[in-house]
Design a protein around this nucleic acid. Structure first.
Lengths: 208, 208
DNA sequence: CCCCAACTTTGACCCAGATCAACGTATGCC
DNA sequence: GGCATACGTTGATCTGGGTCAAAGTTGGGG
């Protein structure tokens, strides 16, 4: 009833429209949801990290491709028993609802980024997201970071080209905001300056 | 326990971060969810049509502004009794889940549009969406359509400027694909040609 | 160890769409 | 009815980021 599957970086896990016989949760690695136009332009529309979920109650297929960004291990369940579980246990249904709402919030931030931010703001936002994710509490040294994907994948994530991504990384380095140790890992030299580059509102609304 | 509220076009219904004492469903009119950067650039991140819902179980505030695009009437419930209702009736919880997943699918299509489509493709996609919405079955004459918003709002929706929106409408008119009867309503002269301009994949995946 | 393929950087150039500006055209209010 | 205001169109110009091209870098396999 519960099986594990592994995928190498770059593998396609699911094609758009493929009937979903399983639901799965990510055990390790990073997978991406993406959509493609008829001429091949693609845009990532979601990122799956460990504990994230593929497949939804009542949906028999998905409207996007799922590919492994790094090596990925999934924990898969058959759809039927899973749906029975959801119907019988309100807590599970509620948890799935929370996951969906979190994804929706993330999608909306991402829409603001795609529609209105400049290339530099997109890269700064991306780095800040990495920093926050790898250091949720703001306690430990947040400066050393590893890029979880190639320039090309970052471009797909941010609605840019890989050349622009590369140039913006170089520019942030030249401006003393980040510093590369090797091409997949770097340190954030000036976190406050980085935040100033994101274009984001100082912070949230009315609450004190 | 159930009250109605009305808002004029342009009114702000809720500010980002404002504590949510009510949940509501749209009775009539169109409302928009939008996010703003520190320098004032804004991007719509959701559109609320009649029967759509504001407020989520377990969320006490929202991360975006809600404004009335046209005159809007909401049907409001107090949050507490509503949450009790959700907990007690699985059908309601399930329905809310479906709404959230539909919004998520819509958000992902929109991300593809914002990140990768050209101005012309964005406008064509927008018009096609209007056509589909006002004529869900493809039966009646789909050609006569009314724009539910100003050029400025359309630009905010599509991640463009109002000038570009205006120019693209003019271009589609010049190319004989649409024809304006007045500046808020037009007919689609050539639906197939319109679809060819959207950039969208012919249609979906593997299913026959 | 070296070579090959995949990834990355950098440069030169171009163009879609933003910006700035000016001029129509509806709509409601006095 | 006429004026004020918001909305819309069109033109001229500028520019951020895309495109094309070429030259580094690096890590894994033979």
């Amino acid at each position: 009833m519960k099986t594990y599957r592994s995928y190498a970086a770059g593998d396609t896990i699911l094609w758009r429209g493929e009937p979903l016989e399983f639901v799965a949760s990510v055990v390790s690695g990073v997978a991406a949801l993406s959509k493609t136009l008829e001429d091949g332009r693609t845009q990532m529309v979601g990122l799956l990290l460990p504990s994230d979920f593929i497949g939804r109650p009542g949906r028999r297929q998905i409207e996007f491709d799922v590919t492994a960004t790094s090596e990925v291990t999934l924990c898969c369940f058959e759809r039927r028993p899973f749906e029975r579980l959801v119907e019988e246990t309100p807590n599970v249904a509620q948890r799935l609802m929370e996951l969906a709402l979190d994804e929706l919030d993330a999608a909306r931030d991402w829409m603001l980024l795609l529609g209105r931010k400049t290339a530099r703001e997109k890269i700064a936002t991306f780095i800040e997201m990495l920093a926050r994710r790898s250091n949720p509490d703001g306690t430990a040294d947040p400066s050393r970071l590893a890029l979880p994907m190639t320039r090309d994948q970052i471009a797909n994530y941010l609605g840019l080209t890989l050349e622009t991504v590369s140039r913006q990384f170089s520019a942030l380095k030249k401006d003393g905001i980040i510093d590369f140790t090797d091409r997949r890992s770097f340190t954030v030299t000036d976190l406050a300056a980085l935040h100033d580059e994101t274009g984001d509102d100082a912070d949230g609304g009315i609450v004190p």
